[in-house]
Amino acid sequence: MTDGWFAGLEPGDTEAAAASIREGTAEEPADWPALAVQAGFAEDEASYYRLLRAATVAAASAAATERERADDRQLVHAVRVMDDCREAANGLAERVAEWGGSRDADAGAGLDYARELADSEPSDPVDRRVASLARRVVDLDEERERLRRFVERTAPEVAPNLTAMAGPVLAARLIALAGGLAALAKKPSGTVQVLGAEDALFAHLRGSAPSPKHGIIYTHEYVRGTAREQRGSAARALAGKLAIAARVDHYSGERKPELETELDARIGRIREREGGT
């Protein structure tokens, strides 16, 4: 017959017990509580269940953390490639427009023009090359869109609180810029505030520029949509809450909607100030 999860374990060794819960297998269940008592692993049923609970909680918690860690790396790849696809599509769309413009005075510009050309089936060999290039551009743009949907699905699982506050794409970019959720969770809010503004920050450190007030979080409505004089305060407030959200997501993973409520109130007060000045 097969062994229960407790076979060969010391009763106090929760770590080994968790490993055995996660890695063990059996074809059929058995009266494990009675067998464990018989084997001397537990004194009685009550103490068996206490040990079982400690072991299952530790195992599920470790497995969940591992799973999420793996997911945050997928999210980082996805958002980076998403941005690369956008850049490549825009760059190539420009080439398409230049080339197309040399053939047709009415040629349009940008992705819309590429989309238009992609649907055409010219017979001229040069126009065929331009149309084919336009199709690559459209493909890249569609891939970017699929990646965005993937990011939107994955970000709330990897970082529910950060995503609720920042939106899935900004949340994913912050995680990517920091090099992972664990790394982001360890950053002070001042660093979160200027993530993505590294060039400006180094210029400032060299003494050739003022210190940057915000990095990528500038794309957030709470910074962009706040009057210029209050933007620094808004960026500080937002970065502070995002840093906390990243920590909650990394260390506990529990949803804390009150973080958003607090941020909303704080931004409300900051924007009121601007009315007063």
Partner: peptide, 9 residues
């Protein structure tokens, strides 16, 4: 089979 070593009948 991934939990029958933990779950009793």
């Amino acid at each position: 089979e991934t939990y029958a070593h933990v779950v009793e009948p």
